[in-house]
Design a protein around this nucleic acid. Structure first.
Lengths: 344, 344
DNA sequence: CTGAGGGATGTTATCGCTAACACTACCTCT
DNA sequence: AGAGGTAGTGTTAGCGATAACATCCCTCAG
């Protein structure tokens, strides 16, 4: 390794300094050093100062493996994340990381390229081998929910964005409510019904949004048109848009995320269909770009940082010995109205 | 903790099974179990089978802390990431995570909300306390570069997207070349010059893109208009667009990323300036949505997964005892031409 | 004056694992 | 047949930290 050697200030005989090294330099026992470093137990001020000097001089850094071995606590949490650039999951990850670091936990991530049952189980098993003290699964899929049914019960585990089927506690934005708000907003503008471009059928969020849309239409006595289904990508939204152009009587479309809504806008623009004059369009997520689409997009804002914070909080509760409740914690979203559903 | 107890199959006397527990159940010494589990040393097939049965029966899982303590290797890499949803950094993170996991390394992330020297140094120090074997810094800032000058030399460290000032090896997309290609493309369409909406001045990528643009104009003998500066956000691109509308003779604009280009498109659309008929616009990054902007955006594609792979490769090389070279490794980007710079 | 109590420190055991070496068969050479 | 290898297994000694208990010295109440 570069830079190691006996003349290196931070090294003793070519290796990182240990508690014992610090102790002999300071002329105390290793336990006293441990007490100074961790702030446990009483130490005389002069002694403390001597120890701290030695710590600095040797560039001492506690060995986390040794500490973890003896305490049985690794100080690490695991996060299973879907390998995607989707706005929501990435933001949630940062929210969790922040809250965890403030509480003194490190975060180990294990990404999953496809949300299959086996890969999620593998990721959980992988994290357990890393001796994490708790696990967060960010993978709002039906398959993730199934994987969680079989998740180990001896490590605290919470899911983000999972559905009611999960056998573990779940934190989630209230997708149903968000979809309801969008749909009611569009109906209130005088449309007879609202079309829907749904997300992939194996995503719980897609299902909840679709259900929110469908049941709102039902409740208002509106016809429920056939569902178009995309894969969250702009491309799939674009294709859905091309299909919608051929339909008659399409006055309002609710896309299950902003990217697909963007695809819709593109398809409509190419076909000379004006938004909002000819068709009104709304999305879901409020990605930072949504305000600058053409036209600016009406959408549903989700506070992912808050989701991350609450996720960590729930996990911490379980790690502190609380029983795992199967509760579902919902964060309320907010409707953001912009020109894409504006006046004509 | 939930589920623990003497009757739990995976537990011995209420705790996780250890090598010794497996050994006594299988009737061998703990070393034999270690050899079976790690595949080191020869073991008779029958013995192996007996051990594996015991492993399964006790749900044995190696204690990574104990292993790390005795081997001196944690099997963990640290990544310092800027807390942002910018497309590039997030993609790079997944590329690194994938390559690392294949090689048997776990990834611990430490996010940094603002790219200041102190926060990056803190993040590095934090990761060192986690006993990571190597560190990747994804923070393409001037300040990050400065922080890296003072980075510890006794842990392998590579930077992603840093500039030449970094005192550590750097992997980066060739921003200069990408900017050159865009600028030449626009000039080749017959424009007298190309305007530029730059990124924040403290981002190295912003500087390199600006330099690529400026020097290309110089080389072609074109006038260099004043630089407009944004902060990567669509909002700042929008504001730059409003400023450009008031300028005379703006025929082509190169925005330093796609989000700002989107803001430009929005500002032009609102002002009735047609793209590409009145003004041609290009971006940088090729975010997945860029093909669905109105109009679809000409931009520069960067292969972030490849960057992540190569970053891990370089780090692995250094961890295997190679000296830290201060080399700079460039990944070549690709120009993607779409309608925003199309024929009029 | 004396014993109790606590502040400040030290000693020892232990966590679960791997490295290093020791040992026993048995097999292959010369 | 004895030397030397190799497969297969066991024994022992740490790694660097914390926990638990032991020790010393001082202060203060009775």
């Amino acid at each position: 390794m570069a830079g190691s050697g006996a003349d290196d200030p931070g090294k003793v005989a070519g290796r990182q300094a240990s508690l014992t090294d610090v102790a002999s330099l300071a002329g105390v026992s290793h336990m006293t050093v441990s007490r100074v470093v961790n702030g446990t137990g009483p130490v005389r001020p002069e002694t403390r100062a001597r120890v701290l000097t030695a710590v600095e001089q040797l560039d001492y850094r506690p060995n986390s493996a040794a500490r973890a071995l003896v305490t049985g606590r690794s100080g690490t949490l695991g996060v299973v994340a879907l390998e995607s650039n989707l706005y929501g999951p990435a933001s949630t990850l940062y929210g969790i990381e922040n809250a965890a670091r403030e509480a003194g936990y490190a975060i180990t991530i294990s990404s999953v390229s496809r949300p299959q049952r086996s890969s999620i189980s593998d990721a959980i098993e992988y994290l357990r081998r890393q001796a994490v003290e708790g696990i967060v699964v960010i993978a709002p899929h039906v398959t993730a929910g199934i994987a969680l049914e079989y998740a180990p019960r001896d490590v605290p585990l919470v899911a983000v964005g999972g559905g009611e089927t999960a056998a573990v506690p779940v934190i989630s934005v209230d997708q149903y409510d968000g979809a309801r708000r969008v749909t009611e907003h569009l109906l209130a503008l005088g449309h007879r019904t609202v079309w829907h471009v749904a997300g992939p059928g194996d995503w719980l969020e897609a299902r909840d949004r679709e259900r929110g849309w469908r049941e709102t239409l039902d409740r208002r006595g509106a016809d429920v048109p056939r569902v178009l289904r995309g894969d969250w990508s702009s491309r799939s939204g674009y294709e859905a848009g091309q299909a919608l152009i051929k339909e008659k009587g399409v006055g309002a479309v609710f896309a299950a995320n902003d990217q697909m809504a963007l695809g819709l806008l593109r398809a409509f623009a190419e076909a000379g269909v004006a938004v909002p004059q000819d068709v009104r369009v709304a999305g879901f997520d409020d990605v930072p770009e949504a305000a600058y689409y053409s036209p600016p997009l009406t959408t549903v804002r989700q506070d992912f940082i808050e989701v991350g914070r609450r996720t960590f909080g729930l996990l911490a509760e379980h790690m502190d010995g609380g029983e795992q409740q199967r509760a579902r914690h919902l964060v309320t979203p907010e409707l953001i109205v912009r020109e894409s559903t504006g006046p004509r």
